[in-house]
Design a protein around this nucleic acid. Structure first.
Lengths: 107, 107
DNA sequence: CATATACGTTAGCTATGACTTACCGTTAGT
DNA sequence: ACTAACGGTAAGTCATAGCTAACGTATATG
């Protein structure tokens, strides 16, 4: 039931913001912390939680710690979400794919 | 950004349990509360939160209040999840659909 | 070797939220 | 009309989570 962990971890707005920033690619802590309404140590703490939840991974690069997304950490959550759809799931998947393609095309 | 609300609401284990019980179909409050490690009023409070988040809807049936799922309340959350996949999204959708079908077939 | 930079960690404060108990309104049955 | 069942609401308690400030550690730089 790792989806429970993922939900709990992503429930906090600040932590979620940090997580979302990683969509743009791997980043060091100070960059992730920039512009956020909290201190840098707070971001470090959030990153620790994200890491323990398997949502993020870390590598050292000199004095920096580069954090990046671990999408596998979202898998169970996604499957859990799927479990709420019954026969309508197929239809939804098609629709989701359609809207995804149209977004992709409009760029 | 209703996905933030959905995440926060579903982060609580007890509340999530109530929500999951509604997968089995619409149910009155006392049924939803049965066997849970918390009191019935607690469940009422959770249902209120779920309702305000648009994850659940309520209808009266005599003295009972029947609660049922609102899957639309999960839509934004699902789309948000999708936003973390890039080019790999198509491949994942195919895989997800495949595993879904195999589960369906094995019943 | 001294200093600066980039982060993690700890301790302590505070706000929030989940829970219980007690209470109240409403519908159903006799 | 009385009573019981169902469930929403209010008040108060308590634990937890997120934050800051201060400190510690490792790498780069002069």
């Amino acid at each position: 039931m790792a989806y429970g962990t993922a939900l709990a971890v992503l429930a906090d707005p600040t932590r979620r913001k940090v997580f979302e920033r990683l969509r743009g690619g791997p980043r060091p802590v100070n960059l992730l912390a920039q512009g956020l309404p909290v201190s840098r140590p707070a971001v470090s703490q959030h990153l620790k939680v994200l890491k323990e939840a398997g949502l993020v991974e870390e590598r050292s690069e000199g004095v920096r710690r580069i954090y990046s997304l671990r999408r596998e950490g979202l898998m169970e959550l996604r499957e859990w979400l799927d479990s709420f759809w019954g026969e309508a799931l197929d239809a939804f998947k098609l629709e989701a794919e359609r809207s995804y393609r149209s977004k992709k095309g409009s760029k």
